[in-house]
Design a protein around this nucleic acid. Structure first.
Length: 580
DNA sequence: GCCGTTTTCGGCCCGACTGTTTTCAGTCG
């Protein structure tokens, strides 16, 4: 049982307790503990063994004992008892928007409804409307929300949402009634997937802006509409919220609506400690406190009055960045213009769309100093993987291009080499030694046990010719789960062997996940941001990788492809020399 | 159930919107 399982069970316990009508603060205590557990970046067994679970914020004695029972014994009687008392179907009902613990309990107590199907039936046959508080509109909403949940319950990749978001922002910014506009929420925090878009506008004429917004051709349905806030569903299913505020409140509203929710809570608690109350409209002294009322026009100023340095949106996920901001120890995050090249690009020699020279020209246009070509190896026959002959031919052509000095960009001869089932590589070291670098990746046999997969990867990491591990968990966001692998062990093995883990910037991969980078880089892991480009256009995926790297607290010094060419060459050469 | 530089008890972020009811509870973010 790992931390995710523990966190999920704590979340479930919170839901069960809320359905039972427990004290809402007790419910929140379990939710807080779940979040804290999710945030820890060590093996939970280690924390227990070293008696450090008590240091995790939000975990007191009672919850700690429960976590220890879960991890050490594999079960928790308290949780089993709750599962018996509260039918598990009620958790599914809690997923329906507009249904919370109170209503779910109410309909269960009245009619023993414990599944979405039963609920639909009760709505349609009029049973539900006999309950207090369930008028015709409530019933209609429940039915529509169930429909939406089935059709649109999914999130969207940040990269895909970007087009919709920027187009709407552009149109809003052109209205003369609009003084400022920003996209807030998880989109601004650059989360890899988003569930909705939050537009924030400063205007003196909210009525006009709301009307304009709800009548946009991209709006499929208006779901809620008040004087300063409306909520719509866009064509394609994504929900979008618009909030209109006076210009003087804009900074406070932007801070608030950027979230995350947890981050906002921590900030408000901090404001309280300093004698203020903070909300989306401003910051006031708490009752009875003799304090001056700070007026802030920017987020920077608000952070300042909270005695914090400015925290970039990407880092607003939990309390860690607040601690760092308090101590003046926030990282200087990597930026897109820091990139001087990249390493994981395919050409028409395997399954890419463009030739070597086309890719080189595109990289030159990006003002990069170097471009690493890493086509597939022979076992990836589905991707037209290269055999030795074709590989050597490609290496020769790369040398020719470099010698011709036709491009300002320098091409590096690499390979995306398959990791076979037993952890050996697709080519012998005799072949690999002719390359500038080698990315090793798993492309098949995903369904191994965690133990087998971890051993397989570690064997590849220990191969002297491996430079970096490609898309380390194989996940495809919103489509395929990561394969089972013990990432902390992989990270440690890479550090011990001087190997890099790539940050695969393909928008549906973003693998390794940003949640692991902060701690891993601190321990000494090196990163490389690689677009996994299969065409010249896809080189721009690097910017999705930058988003993820920033969320992972990475700075220039952690990322190989921010180094100038000479330093990259010596880095790669040094790694090869260690192979003797 | 957690937590503590006024506290080991009494707080716990805070406001908008909806629907149903005439002053509020529930849900959401």
């Amino acid at each position: 049982m790992d931390k995710h399982d523990v966190a999920r069970i704590l979340e479930d316990i919170a839901l069960f307790l809320s359905i039972q009508g427990e004290n809402p603060f007790k419910v929140r205590a379990y939710q807080n503990a779940a979040r804290s557990i999710e945030d820890i970046d060590e093996a939970i067994e280690t924390l227990i063994a070293e008696n450090r679970l008590k240091d995790v914020p939000g975990v007191g004695d009672k919850i700690r004992w429960k976590i220890e029972a879960l991890v050490l014994k594999g079960s928790l009687p308290f949780y089993e008892k709750l599962k018996k008392e509260v039918p598990p179907g009620l958790l599914e009902l809690m997923d329906v928007p507009s249904l919370g613990a109170k209503k779910v309990k109410q309909i269960y107590d009245a009619f023993e409804i414990q599944s979405v199907e039963q609920l639909v039936e009760a709505c349609e046959n009029g049973q539900l409307s006999t309950l207090k508080g369930f008028g015709p509109k409530t019933i209609e909403n429940i039915l529509r929300n169930i429909e939406n949940l089935k059709a649109y319950g999914k999130r969207m990749l940040w990269w895909d949402a970007k087009k919709l978001a920027y187009a709407m922002r552009e149109k809003l910014s052109k209205l003369k009634q609009v003084k400022k506009v920003e996209i807030a929420g998880s989109f601004r925090r650059k989360l890899e997937t988003v569930g909705d878009l939050d537009f924030l506008v400063a205007s003196n004429d909210p009525e006009f802006v709301m009307n304009w917004f709800s009548k946009q051709p991209s709006v499929e349905k208006v779901q809620a509409r008040g004087p300063t806030k409306s909520s719509v569903r866009l064509k394609g299913g994504l929900q979008a919220d618009l909030r209109v505020v006076p210009e003087e409140e804009f900074a406070y509203a932007l801070l608030y609506f950027t979230g995350s929710k947890d981050f906002d809570i921590f900030l408000r608690q901090r404001a309280n400690q300093l004698g203020f109350t903070l909300n989306e409209y401003g910051m006031q002294p708490l009752l009875g406190k003799r304090k001056k009322n700070p007026v802030c026009k920017t987020e920077e100023a608000i952070f300042q009055s909270l005695k914090l340095s400015y925290i970039p949106p990407e880092l607003r996920e939990g309390a860690a960045s607040i601690d760092a901001a308090e101590k003046g120890k926030l990282p200087k995050l990597v930026e897109e213009q820091d990139l001087r090249g990249t390493f994981h690009c395919h050409t028409a020699d395997s399954d890419g769309h463009n030739t070597l020279t086309e890719m080189a020209a595109a990289a030159e246009e990006l003002k990069w100093e170097y471009l690493g070509i890493a086509d597939h190896s022979k076992s990836s026959y589905q991707a037209n993987g290269m055999d030795e002959k074709r590989l050597f031919n490609q290496i020769d052509r790369i040398k020719e291009i470099n010698q011709s000095r036709k491009f300002k960009v320098y091409l590096l001869a690499g390979l995306e080499c398959d990791i076979l089932n037993d952890g050996t590589l697709d080519f012998p070291n005799e072949v690999l030694k002719h390359l500038d670098y080698v990315i090793t990746s798993v492309h098949r046999s995903f369904k191994m046990s965690e133990k087998e997969m971890t051993a397989r990867l570690i064997k590849a990491i220990e191969n002297p010719f491996t430079t970096m591990i490609g898309h380390v968990t194989g996940r495809l966001l919103l489509r395929r789960d990561p394969y089972l692998v013990n990432l902390p062990k992989i990270i440690d093995a890479c550090i011990a062997n001087g190997k890099i883990i790539e940050l695969n910037a393909y928008p549906s991969r973003l693998d390794m996940d940003w949640r692991f980078w902060h701690h891993a880089a601190e321990k000494g892991l090196m990163c490389s941001i690689n677009p996994d480009a299969h065409s010249t256009d896809e080189l721009q995926y690097c910017s999705a990788g930058i988003n993820c790297a920033r969320k992972g607290w990475l700075e220039k010094k952690h990322i190989l492809n921010t180094f100038p060419l000479a330093k990259v060459k010596s880095y790669l050469l040094e790694n090869k020399q260690n192979t003797h």
